[in-house]
Design a protein around this nucleic acid. Structure first.
Lengths: 253, 253
DNA sequence: CGCGGTTTTGAGAATCCTCAAAACCAGTGG
DNA sequence: CCACTGGTTTTGAGGATTCTCAAAACCGCG
């Protein structure tokens, strides 16, 4: 159920000035001195394999990460093994903030694909707050955005039916992926198994399969190579009674 | 379903230096200059009645609030009226941050009892970040804590059974209330109806009633005057398979 | 070819829902 | 004082949703 905790550490250097993410239109422009500081803030890069656990529940992580490439997910486990996936982590997302602020991680993070992560040192966060209020604001911004996503997810699990829930989740992920340019002109491909979907929706694997099957019959999605192809995002949104997110230019630390 | 939006505004002045909350042991000590700034940051006090809506989904609030006294809850509505309660707001909690950062509220906040709120102006947040990195850090801290509560709530709704869910919620609220000194020596009293519990747990009112009844039969809780008396917090935690929060000294803005 | 991970299908059972109505209770106006 | 009202809690009954157990089918990979 949980992935192996092997962690193929591998450090390269890609200067922030040539960050592949920052040129994307959804990220806000940085002042030169902000960019300089982030560059020094960055301690290196970490590459991990699919299935690896990046952060572990219960342990205090000395690092903060920004995901540069790949897909991951945050989850919690109950003592008897029940798993709940809380949210998905896409490029540009910050992880490990809870540990840096509150002391201990209360959730784990696992890689859905191989990942490239920017590594920051936890201790430097205070310096960031002292010297770059704008960046500090951005960190809070990211935390507030995560909260917003969790709110919608909570509404989904609490009050939407199985089909609505599935439709919401797949539309949500497809839209996030598209905004990052992770999809070509064709349908978005989500690197998740039906087990991941089940653990996100709070449903059993069997019932999730039957629910997804209905969406597939209606040509809203398709399964290929242990991944989900999202064929019609707007139809999914309509099924979920969800009008979509209000995407504004966002910060990238 | 939603409360009346009447808002009995009433402004008094209680200087932060005589804040009734700050002396509590769970709040961290402030530097004198931090306290000074918060005092100037504070624009006044707002008193609202039970049932009033403090913040409305979809509207950009020009204010930030810290709850001084009373109970409230955050919730979202679906177009057809389904309601999901996301979390409860207790004294010392900050509300309206999402709006200040992201532009628009995506949830509403309603008073469970009459409330006293500290009012801050949204625009001053930037000044706080510039001049008091420590306070800025605190704001982020509060956001990360909210996220942590939402994570646990998501696990609850997604993976716990009805009884486990109810037990978790009531233990969670009882512990939060106790930490704030809101309970005397006796059992904690939670000012919620079974409808609130149902909308928090993602269950129907009928099934919630039958579930709570089981807990009442076992003497874990009791209902009195449209409120829940929590008789045995530890037993509830055991039912929920929940070990409780890690309460550390926390900031109060 | 055999293996492990993933998807699919069947069947019966538990959980949870909806509809409906009654009981209870504090507050309100006659 | 009493009837009436609205909000809350309680109970019954049938039905829909979702779960668990079990097994088969499928598929890339060594």
């Amino acid at each position: 159920m949980a992935g192996k905790s092997s962690r193929a550490a591998h450090v390269r250097a890609t200067p922030c000035s040539r960050c592949p993410l920052r040129p994307l239109p959804i990220f806000r422009n940085f002042e030169p001195e902000e960019l300089d500081f982030v560059s020094t803030f960055k301690r290196g890069e970490l590459v991990v394999n699919r299935g690896s656990t990046v952060l572990v529940e219960g342990s205090p992580s000395p690092y903060l990460y920004t995901l540069l490439a790949g897909w991951a997910f945050r989850y919690k486990l109950m003592p008897d093994g029940r798993r709940q996936i809380l949210n998905y982590v896409l490029p540009g997302d910050l992880i490990g903030l809870q540990s840096s602020l509150l002391g201990e991680m209360e959730h784990s993070v696992e890689a859905l694909s191989s990942l490239v992560l920017c590594v920051f040192e936890r201790g430097q966060l205070k310096e960031l707050y002292s010297r770059f209020p704008g960046l500090a604001f951005d960190v809070t911004w990211l935390a507030a955005r995560e909260e917003q996503m969790l709110d919608e997810n909570l509404l989904s699990i609490g009050r939407r039916s199985a089909v609505e829930r599935a439709a919401y989740l797949l539309a949500f992920l497809a839209i996030r992926a598209k905004a990052l340019g992770l999809a070509g002109p064709g349908p978005v491909q989500l690197p998740v198994t039906q087990q991941h979907v089940a653990d996100t929706l709070g449903l059993s694997l069997v019932h999730t399969n039957r629910t997804l099957r209905k969406l597939a019959e209606r040509k809203r999605i398709a399964w290929k190579d242990s991944a989900c192809l999202v064929l019609d995002v707007e139809a999914l949104q309509a099924i979920a009674h969800w009008s979509g997110p209000s995407e504004k230019p966002r910060p990238l630390i």
